[in-house]
Amino acid sequence: MRDVRDALFVARNSDDKLISRPLSPHLQVYRWPLSMALSISHRVTGVGLAIGTLLMTWWLVAAAVSDDAFAQVQWFLGTPLGILLLLGWSAALFFHFFTGLRHLAWDAGYGFDKPWYERSGWAVIAATIVATLLLWIIGFAVW
């Protein structure tokens, strides 16, 4: 017994034999409702954005250090891999931004009713797609 709480998970069956109590079903038995998918995605994009800060740090440090270093980072961001990273970063940022707003609304006590819960969830997805597309259309227009 690793933990004293394990004692609570032991019981006797009708034959008076000691057995482990059944545990509640784990994640994989549930169908994925929208709220569940958005919740874990909020966390995943958060971790992704943390990795993305390395890119921002590289860009800022390179700009501060030398022309060569800055040319290097600008070149990398223009390669297919660089563009893919930026695309993923911007989509993750918008997603985390909009789900974050939803979290702030919940913290203030709004938006818990089931219809609103669903509606705001789909709104987050729509807003993420629209904002990401808009950013890249403007970006390519400037480029």
Binding site: L54, M56, T57, L60, V61, A64, V65
Partner: peptide, 13 residues
């Protein structure tokens, strides 16, 4: 450390 690197870079720029 990353935050400090960013802040120093912003100041240098």
């Amino acid at each position: 450390l990353l935050a400090l690197a960013c802040i120093v870079s912003v100041l240098r720029l």
